[in-house]
Amino acid sequence: MTAGGADASSGHLPVMVEQVMEGLQVTEGGAYLDGTFGRGGHARRVLERLGDKGRLLLMDKDPEAIAVAEHRFGADPRVAIHRGSFATLADWDATRDGLDGILLDLGVSSPQLDVAERGFSFGKDGPLDMRMDPDTGESAAAWLARAEADEIADVLWTYGEERHSRRIARAIVARRAEAPLQRTAQLAELIASVMPRGADRIHPATRSFQAIRIHINRELADLEAGLDAALRTLRPGGRLAVISFHSLEDRIAKQFIARHAKAPAGNRRLPEAVPFVPVLRGVGGAIRADAAELAVNPRARSAVLRVAQKLEAAP
């Protein structure tokens, strides 16, 4: 597949696949983990570079993604598949011997957005769910039915930077007193009805839907846990590649790499308690999709790839 091209068997467009391959530096006999399988565009490219002794581990907490992984790659003896969040990757027995590369492609996938029944999209009416793992946790509808207005507003502001978070939260609480919010179209129309008219080109519900989805799926907490697990699991010289679509995710990835690569600013008046020993080095800074990919895959416009390598001397 060429950069920006669709995966032949799924029609899905994996983001920055060439840049990811360059970042991971896949070797024939290495062991790699795709912690967010999705529809397997990145995984397929990794597998193409592996020899008979290579190993590819696939994770996703979405059962539909796991079903696709089993169908497409389950018969390959080099592949192991596990349903679960990448936050728990270090708990999977298959990772215990260490990995040479880990990919985390964050956020909601195109297939999830395209299926109305998953409840991720305000543009497709469906049940107000938003769970990436529909068997775990509470749905967006259940949370909105019980959360106080202040909690809802805090989520909308923190994860969506929604300037009208309190107005929207009050409207949600008032509406649910009359009838529960159970459909994505209901929520989207409610949000649009209380938003001031302006020059903003995006749908009025965009930021709120994003914020609720991040909260329901604990995406930022999972990312922090997953990065720690990845660092523990990578072999010296191994590579970590993280694709973010939101500034909050990218900030966490950027700060994680910096924290383990650079000594923190010290106070020259105080003695250094413990000498800083770097365990990571950043590779290439923030990487973005090129013009050719953006022309065929607009979703890549907000994507940022960060790559880090575990140092040889790291524990």
Rank of each mutant, 00 (worst) to 15 (best):
Q255A: 13
L311M: 15
A149W: 04
L56V: 08
E312K: 15
L187W: 04
A221K: 15
Y32D: 09
A300I: 04
D150A: 15
A147F: 07
S247R: 14
A303F: 04
A169Q: 03
A263C: 02
L231M: 12
A147Q: 08
I214P: 07
I243F: 06
R118C: 01
A174T: 12
A303W: 01
P204Y: 04
S244Q: 09
A292F: 12
G84T: 05
P111I: 06
D200W: 12
D7A: 13
G98W: 11
I81H: 00
K124W: 04
M21F: 08
I216H: 09
D250M: 08
L13I: 09
L270F: 04
E293K: 06
H203A: 05
V17D: 00
R44C: 02
R131A: 01
I172N: 01
D135G: 07
L311H: 14
D93Y: 11
T136M: 03
R49Q: 15
A300F: 03
T2A: 12
P63N: 08
E178F: 05
G40T: 07
G237V: 06
V279Y: 04
E312R: 15
T233P: 08
E189I: 01
Q25L: 13
R251V: 05
A253W: 01
S208Y: 05
F73G: 00
D34G: 11
F256G: 07
P180C: 10
R176G: 03
